[in-house]
Simulated scan of single mutants.
Amino acid sequence: MPRELAVFGILIPTLLPIFLASLLLQGALDWVLGHAGLYRRAWHPALVRLCLLVCIFSALTLVLYS
């Protein structure tokens, strides 16, 4: 995989689209978990949200770069 993507003549790192995709996936998962009421059982819901984002981003990065 190339390290940079050319978008309208601007070079952006490949991790940026991966991060944006992980934000979208985390938002959808956050909505599902919020409606299911699972955040009421968490000690710190914001920390759970951050951990989910890190796990999703790491998984997408590992899939793409391995």
Results as ranks from 00 to 15, higher is better:
17 P>Y: 02
61 T>P: 01
43 W>H: 05
59 A>V: 12
48 V>Q: 00
13 P>I: 07
2 P>V: 06
52 L>P: 02
27 G>R: 07
62 L>N: 03
64 L>F: 08
49 R>L: 00
39 Y>L: 12
12 I>S: 03
27 G>W: 01
6 A>S: 15
10 I>D: 04
33 L>C: 08
36 A>M: 13
39 Y>T: 03
5 L>T: 08
10 I>E: 09
8 F>R: 15
52 L>E: 07
52 L>A: 10
59 A>P: 03
58 S>H: 15
14 T>H: 14
50 L>H: 03
41 R>D: 00
48 V>A: 06
57 F>V: 06
35 H>P: 00
18 I>R: 12
2 P>L: 10
55 C>Q: 02
29 L>M: 08
22 S>R: 13
61 T>Q: 05
64 L>N: 04
4 E>R: 12
20 L>A: 09
59 A>W: 07
56 I>N: 08
30 D>V: 03
11 L>F: 04
36 A>V: 05
41 R>L: 04
19 F>R: 09
53 L>D: 00
2 P>S: 12
56 I>Y: 06
46 A>S: 12
22 S>T: 10
45 P>F: 07
47 L>N: 01
6 A>M: 15
65 Y>R: 14
16 L>G: 03
56 I>L: 13
66 S>M: 10
56 I>T: 13
62 L>S: 07
56 I>M: 15
58 S>F: 15
64 L>Q: 10
35 H>V: 01
10 I>Q: 15
5 L>N: 10
59 A>D: 08
33 L>K: 01
35 H>Y: 05
27 G>V: 03
60 L>I: 06
